[in-house]
């Protein structure tokens, strides 16, 4: 690999990283927290609750869902 090519790799990686950092700054505010919460809950359900043999009986409703 030529030195130019090595450099191009390094700078590409750095540029992508920088872009990700800025993107994450913004994403954190607008939807990452929701996603994180969902993943945490989902993982807890899949790893813990679903293995305990609990029931999955449909809950009752008394008026139309919103």
């Amino acid at each position: 690999m030529t030195e130019q090519k090595k450099f191009r790799l390094v700078i590409l990686f750095a540029v992508v990283l920088t872009a990700l950092v800025i993107l994450q700054n913004v994403a954190k505010e607008y939807f990452m927290a929701d996603l994180e919460g969902y993943l945490t809950r989902r993982l807890y359900y899949e790893r813990t609750i679903s293995k305990k043999g609990l029931s999955g009986q449909k809950g009752m409703h008394w008026r139309e869902q919103e």
């Binding site: 030195e3 450099f7 390094v10 750095a14 990283l17 920088t18 990700l20 950092v21």
Partner: peptide, 25 residues
């Protein structure tokens, strides 16, 4: 971790590219 990776990369790159962060980013 992303920000710290960028720090690490930017410092290490100076071994081969002078003032890497200053010049490009």
């Amino acid at each position: 971790y992303l920000a710290w990776t960028l720090v690490g990369l930017s410092l290490a790159a100076n071994l081969r590219v002078e003032r890497f962060w200053c010049r490009y980013l």
